[in-house]
């Protein structure tokens, strides 16, 4: 069965954009990667999947000092009056 991969759709989900040349390369890549990775056998019952890696341990919720706002804001590409600034999100 020939898979039809919609690169533009996946790119929009991933918040990436590609020009026509990059899209063509990705289409080719996807074909060979899915040939390589796509033929996975079904090996065990789904019931057995509950504990693949046991990630159910949670620590107690203690309040402790975090990193100061000033230091964190220094990492932001743009900030204003103690806030991270971004382009307008909501339309008028």
């Amino acid at each position: 069965m020939k898979r039809r991969i919609d690169i533009k759709h996946i790119a929009s989900l991933a918040k990436l954009s590609f020009d026509d040349q990059e899209t063509a390369i990705l289409e080719k890549n996807f074909e060979s990667i899915l040939d390589f990775a796509g033929e996975l056998p079904i090996l065990v019952d789904a019931d057995d999947m509950s504990d693949v890696l046991e990630l159910d341990k949670l620590r107690d919720d203690h309040i402790s000092a975090g990193i100061s706002v000033d230091i964190l804001l220094k990492q932001a590409p743009s900030s204003l009056n103690g806030f991270i600034s971004v382009p307008k999100v909501i339309e008028n």
């Binding site: 989900l13 991933a14 990667i33």
Partner: peptide
């Protein structure tokens, strides 16, 4: 970007069971 695309594809509607879920079965 290639891996983000591959991962997004493997988790996307219609493909999740055929790729991601099956890969987790292989892992088990």
């Amino acid at each position: 970007k290639r891996r983000i695309m591959l991962g997004t594809f493997a988790l996307s509607t219609g493909y999740h069971d055929a790729y991601y879920k099956r890969a987790k079965h292989v892992q088990r």
